[in-house]
Design a protein around this nucleic acid. Structure first.
Lengths: 123, 123
DNA sequence: CTTGCATCTGACGTCAATGTCAGGTCTTAG
DNA sequence: CTAAGACCTGACATTGACGTCAGATGCAAG
């Protein structure tokens, strides 16, 4: 498929796909005229990449981790594997941080609910 | 206290505090010479602000919900209250998204562990 | 008084993922 | 064949929360 279809199927912009390629996260075969062509598998790959971006990984970090996706078990993925574990842990810590923030907002919400209820029934 | 002490106590940079003021998240009284002065309470306020930033709220959004911190129960905080609930929900959704990403990484880690184990004991 | 550190304002720099535009080529339906 | 729409490269624009620097002033200690 060409880049437009991949973009539509994976739910990202064409611009982003070109950027992923530039960052070494995605490869394409080129037609004689230079247009990018992709296989069906790339759809899932792009979705995974998106997920990693969503989890706060940078292009560089994703590139570092991708060997674990492409060639698990390779000796040369030692760094990649370590990085992968590292990022998983970072995400876990981030989740905890978010949970604390959510709890703080929940407390705020509760306080405000109480005050609002009082206002509705002043006596 | 002056800005340097507040920065140290709240664990942020002086630059950030000035920025928060610029964004309407923080106020200060000024000495005759124009220096900012803060009360002890501001330390907690800054920490709360930091938490909100950490949870992905923008300056604008934080400014919108702060009325719930400053004057809960006021009629005019209707919008603020709604926004607060909205953000709480957004954070919850983000947590779910992160959890999914973490699970994806966990699966990757598991696959790689297996392959690496095989390599260590080839026969 | 002066020396040195804190503070002030204002402005420009940063970083990363992506939007957007320009000017040109490719492909495909009719 | 032709027009429309997809695609190409290259480049500049954007956004937000700061970092950083310059030049000036304030303040506490010796």
């Amino acid at each position: 498929m060409r880049i437009g279809e991949l973009a539509a199927r994976a739910g990202v912009s064409v611009r982003s796909l070109r950027y992923y390629e530039e960052q070494g996260l995605l490869t394409s075969t080129r037609s004689l005229s230079g247009q990018r062509h992709y296989t069906d598998d790339e759809v899932e790959r792009v979705r995974l990449i998106q997920r990693m971006y969503g989890a706060g990984l940078s292009s560089r970090t994703i590139a570092e981790v991708l060997p674990c996706v492409d060639t698990p078990s390779e000796q040369n993925s030692d760094e990649a594997f370590e990085r992968l574990v590292q990022e998983r842990d970072r995400i876990s810590r981030h989740i905890d941080e978010l949970a604390e923030a959510r709890d703080a907002l929940d407390r705020l919400i509760e306080v405000n609910r109480v005050h609002r209820a009082q206002q509705l029934t002043p006596r």
